[in-house]
Simulated scan of single mutants.
Amino acid sequence: MGSLFVLLAVYTAIFLLGMLMMRAGLYTLSGDRMNEWLMRFTAKPWQSFLTGLATTALVQSSSAVMVMTVGLVATGYLSFRQSIGIILGSNIGSTLTTELMTLDLGEGAIPLLLGGALLVFLGRRRFLYGIGMAVAGLAVLLFAMDGFSSLARPLAAYPFVNVWLQETNRSTAAGLLVGIALTALVHSSAATIGIAMGFVNEQLLTLPAAIAILLGANIGTCITGLLASIGAGKEARLTAYTHLWLNVAGVAVFAFFTAPLARFAALLSPAPDVQLAHVSVVFNVVCSVAALPFVGAIERAMIRLHGSR
C-alpha cells in the first residue's frame, strides 16, 4: 500500500519537474522581457488583461506570474489597479497548461524527450537551449500524466481511497475541499488537475466530481500569491487578496453548475480528460471576461474590504 502512495508522490514530483523545465525553457526564450512587458503594457485594464494572459501562457504558471506581479506592485512599478487586469488574464493563460496535459503522444514522448535533451546539451545558442528545455519538460509532464492514470485503479482498490472517491462523487463540497487542500500543499493547480484527470480517465471519478476538484484548485492556487505578499506593502497585499476573492466568487457561482458543465463538456470531446481541460477554459474565460469591465469597481470594493491604501 505504501509503495503506491510513494509512486504517486514520485509522479507528482516528476510532474512538477516537467512544469519547472517548461517554465525555465520558455523564460529563457523571453529573457528579462517578462517584467518589462508587465510594466509597459498595463496602462489600461484590457492591456493588463492581455499582458497577463500572454505572460502566463509563456511562463506556464499563473503562480509565477502572481509572484512577479505582487513583487512589482510592492516595489511601485505597478499599481494595484493595473494588477487586477493581469490577474484576470493570468487565469485564462493558465488553461493552456491543462490543454497541453491532455496530449496523447504514446511512445512519441520518448523521442520528444530525447530531442529536447539533445538541444539542451548540444545547443550552443540560447534559443535552442530554451526550445530544448520546453520540449523536454513537456515530455516529462506527459510521462507523469501517464503515471497518474496507471496508479488510479490500484489506489482505488484501497478502502479509504474508495470511500474518498465515493464521497467526492456524491458531494461537490468534498471535491472543492480536496482541490483546495491538494493545491495548497503542492503549490500547483495543474498537478491537482492532472491527478483528477487520471482518476476520471479510469472512470473512478465522475466528471462533475472532477470539475469540483478543478474549481477547488483555482482557490488553492491563491496561497502562493498570499505567501508572496507577506511583509509587502498594502497594495501588494490587496493584489493577493483580489486574486483570492475573484477566484472564490467565480467558484461560488460555478459550483452549482458542475452537472450542466459536465454535459456541455461531453458535447465538445469524448475523452474525459479533454472534457475537464475544456471546462477549465470555459470557467476561467467566463469569469475573467465578465469581471474585466468592472476593474474600477473591484478596486474600490477591495480597498473598502481590506482597508485604505
Results as ranks from 00 to 15, higher is better:
residue 260 P to F: 07
residue 203 Q to E: 15
residue 308 S to P: 14
residue 55 T to M: 04
residue 91 N to C: 03
residue 244 L to Y: 09
residue 100 L to A: 10
residue 249 A to E: 01
residue 35 N to M: 13
residue 3 S to L: 14
residue 161 V to A: 11
residue 114 L to C: 13
residue 190 A to S: 15
residue 204 L to A: 08
residue 214 L to K: 02
residue 51 T to G: 01
residue 296 G to F: 10
residue 95 T to L: 00
residue 52 G to A: 07
residue 28 T to C: 14
residue 144 A to V: 10
residue 97 T to E: 06
residue 268 L to F: 03
residue 221 T to E: 05
residue 198 G to F: 04
residue 273 D to I: 00
residue 169 N to Y: 03
residue 180 I to R: 04
residue 224 T to Y: 08
residue 216 G to A: 02
residue 195 I to S: 13
residue 87 I to V: 11
residue 212 A to D: 07
residue 223 I to L: 14
residue 97 T to H: 04
residue 52 G to C: 05
residue 177 L to V: 15
residue 18 G to F: 00
residue 157 A to Q: 15
residue 17 L to P: 00
residue 200 V to P: 06
residue 191 A to H: 05
residue 17 L to Q: 00
residue 89 G to V: 06
residue 126 R to V: 13
residue 206 T to L: 04
residue 147 G to F: 08
residue 299 E to F: 06
residue 220 G to W: 02
residue 51 T to F: 04
residue 195 I to C: 13
residue 169 N to C: 10
residue 264 F to P: 08
residue 130 G to M: 10
residue 274 V to I: 08
residue 239 T to E: 05
residue 286 V to S: 06
residue 181 A to H: 14
residue 16 L to I: 10
residue 116 G to W: 00
residue 245 W to G: 01
residue 144 A to E: 04
residue 205 L to Y: 07
residue 298 I to L: 14
residue 126 R to F: 05
residue 39 M to V: 13
residue 292 L to P: 05
residue 126 R to S: 14
residue 25 G to A: 05
residue 241 Y to E: 00
residue 139 A to L: 03
residue 138 L to V: 06
residue 134 A to T: 12
residue 74 A to N: 15
residue 37 W to Y: 10
residue 76 G to P: 13
residue 14 I to M: 08
residue 35 N to Y: 11
residue 307 G to A: 11
residue 181 A to M: 15
residue 209 A to P: 03
residue 198 G to T: 05
residue 7 L to N: 08
residue 110 I to L: 12
residue 280 S to M: 07
residue 279 V to H: 03
residue 298 I to T: 14
residue 113 L to Y: 10
residue 35 N to P: 12
residue 291 A to G: 09
residue 270 P to R: 09
residue 137 G to Q: 05
residue 8 L to V: 10
residue 258 T to R: 10
residue 54 A to D: 09
residue 39 M to E: 09
residue 146 D to H: 08
residue 183 T to L: 09
residue 192 T to N: 12
residue 102 T to M: 00
residue 6 V to Y: 12
residue 171 S to F: 09
residue 245 W to P: 00
residue 149 S to L: 06
residue 30 S to N: 07
residue 76 G to A: 13
residue 66 M to D: 01
residue 295 V to C: 11
residue 298 I to M: 13
residue 274 V to R: 00
residue 251 V to G: 01
residue 18 G to D: 02
residue 194 G to Q: 08
residue 68 M to Y: 07
residue 1 M to V: 15
residue 39 M to A: 12
residue 64 A to G: 10
residue 198 G to I: 09
residue 303 I to W: 15
residue 54 A to P: 09
residue 8 L to H: 10
